[in-house]
Amino acid sequence: MKHDVATKALLDIDEQIDSLVKQIELLSYVNPTNIEEEKTRFFSSKYLTDPVFKYPEINFDRFKLHRALFTLPLEQIEDTTVKNLYEDIIYAYSGLIQCIQTIGDGKKFYYNCLRCFGTPTENDVENAKFILHFEEENQEEGVFKPKYTAPETEVFFKDYSKKYDFSYNIKYSDKISAIAMVLNNVKTLVLNSNHKYSENEIAVLTNHEIGVHMVTTMNGLLHPLKIFSHGFPNNEETQEGLAVFSEYMSNNLTIKRLKELAYRVIAVDSLAKGYTFSRTFRLLHNQYDLEREEAFYITVRAHRGGGFTKDYLYLTGLKKIYDYYHAGKDLSLLLTGKVSLEYANEITTLIDKGLALPSKHITDAYAENKNANKKVDFILKSLK
């Protein structure tokens, strides 16, 4: 495919950003390496002594990275829309570098996160509290019983994945705070080897992790522009919104799961109010009656690094995608890679110019709305 001078300049800049940002995977730096030891210590202190978390070593030179990003010749991109997108991208990645370089440095890390991810509005907190008023489903039923080990769960993932025309790796780890996660850059699903999975969790995770996160990973790799792989600014909100929405569409979104997303908003809000780790934990455990293990992990997610605000975006993202779908808009546009709803017009522009491709892989759950849970629908419609 022949390129004019302006297109070549864009592809060069995109290529350079690609080589620079390969080094900055925020999640691989912000997850503490000593969660379990600190949990034991925290519980035996009767929830009074804040955990002291350790983090992986940072193996890149942040000044070199900043300098290289800001000396890219963006003026060579002729199309103003595309140039503005790349300017936003550079500022977003610069913000992520600042987040990584201040992990563990309390206030500094927290302020850098605010710039990257924001913090819940009063509206978001009201939405979370509204969800918490609802009664959970009866968790005694068979589908909620923990019974499958990670290797047994892998079989279900492999079976589910036959719906898709791609392959990926599966690994186990006892060092992750989630029960499963997709590592975008190495096309790998990681299952938590300490966890026993229920049928409901397997149904949720196959749709969430493979149906969306792995689908957007695979679609992202097909474009001439690599930015679809690494991620647009604020892509977390859209990507997590899409992933939870696939749980809804496949009839696996429960009140319990919505409450988990609501507790995350409450935890991040308590961070914004200046609460310590132990105070956030006590708020969830004592005031909201959240079982202590769950309260601990939700608190870790919000307080890791010194205050990681990203967790409130799951609920805001879900509401945005729910409304987008019910307005009759095209979800496949948002599956083109690690993209953001705010840049839907830019994605269309790039596809029209032949610099991006329509989604090859489409989330299976999006084919038809199978949600039969009236209460979940009522909640999602009512969120402000």
Results as ranks from 00 to 15, higher is better:
28 S>F: 03
254 T>G: 03
273 K>R: 11
324 Y>E: 07
290 L>I: 13
142 G>N: 10
351 I>E: 10
38 E>P: 08
114 L>M: 13
118 G>L: 09
240 E>L: 10
180 A>K: 01
57 E>Y: 03
108 K>W: 01
215 V>G: 03
228 F>Q: 04
117 F>H: 08
361 H>T: 00
216 T>Y: 05
63 F>G: 15
364 D>S: 14
222 L>A: 15
81 T>M: 05
268 V>H: 01
36 E>I: 09
77 I>M: 09
118 G>F: 11
298 I>S: 06
150 A>G: 13
292 R>I: 13
366 Y>F: 15
69 L>N: 07
356 A>R: 03
172 Y>M: 14
77 I>G: 10
321 I>T: 05
89 I>R: 01
27 L>W: 12
169 N>Q: 15
129 K>Y: 14
134 F>Y: 15
324 Y>W: 10
366 Y>S: 10
272 A>L: 05
306 G>A: 07
208 H>V: 01
61 D>G: 15
355 L>I: 08
186 V>T: 13
94 S>G: 07
92 A>I: 01
83 K>T: 03
165 D>I: 02
77 I>F: 09
149 T>I: 03
208 H>P: 05
368 E>D: 09
370 K>C: 12
353 K>S: 11
32 P>D: 05
195 H>C: 02
130 F>W: 07
113 C>M: 10
29 Y>G: 00
259 K>F: 04
210 I>E: 03
155 V>M: 07
31 N>H: 13
330 D>L: 06
163 K>M: 06
227 I>M: 12
152 E>D: 14
313 L>F: 02
155 V>R: 10
142 G>A: 11
18 D>Q: 13
211 G>S: 08
86 Y>A: 07
293 E>G: 14
145 K>S: 14
347 I>F: 09
104 G>W: 00
231 G>Y: 02
347 I>D: 08
334 L>N: 05
98 Q>H: 09
195 H>E: 07
252 N>L: 00
258 L>Y: 02
105 D>V: 05
268 V>P: 02
202 I>A: 00
254 T>S: 14
354 G>M: 06
112 N>Y: 03
143 V>D: 02
206 T>E: 05
272 A>C: 10
217 T>R: 12
152 E>P: 08
195 H>D: 01
254 T>Y: 01
127 N>K: 05
22 K>A: 11
139 Q>S: 14
307 G>R: 00
105 D>I: 06
318 L>T: 09
328 G>D: 08
75 E>Q: 15
120 P>C: 05
371 N>K: 10
216 T>H: 13
61 D>F: 15
270 S>V: 00
200 N>D: 11
126 E>W: 08
221 L>N: 12
321 I>V: 13
340 S>F: 08
302 A>N: 08
289 D>T: 06
379 I>D: 14
76 Q>L: 09
87 E>Y: 11
184 N>K: 03
112 N>K: 07
209 E>G: 01
377 D>L: 04
357 L>R: 12
340 S>G: 10
349 T>W: 09
66 H>A: 02
259 K>P: 08
44 S>E: 15
323 D>A: 04
203 A>H: 13
164 Y>G: 06
40 T>F: 00
255 I>K: 01
352 D>Y: 09
114 L>H: 11
160 Y>S: 09
225 L>F: 02
70 F>G: 06
307 G>M: 01
8 K>Y: 12
348 T>R: 14
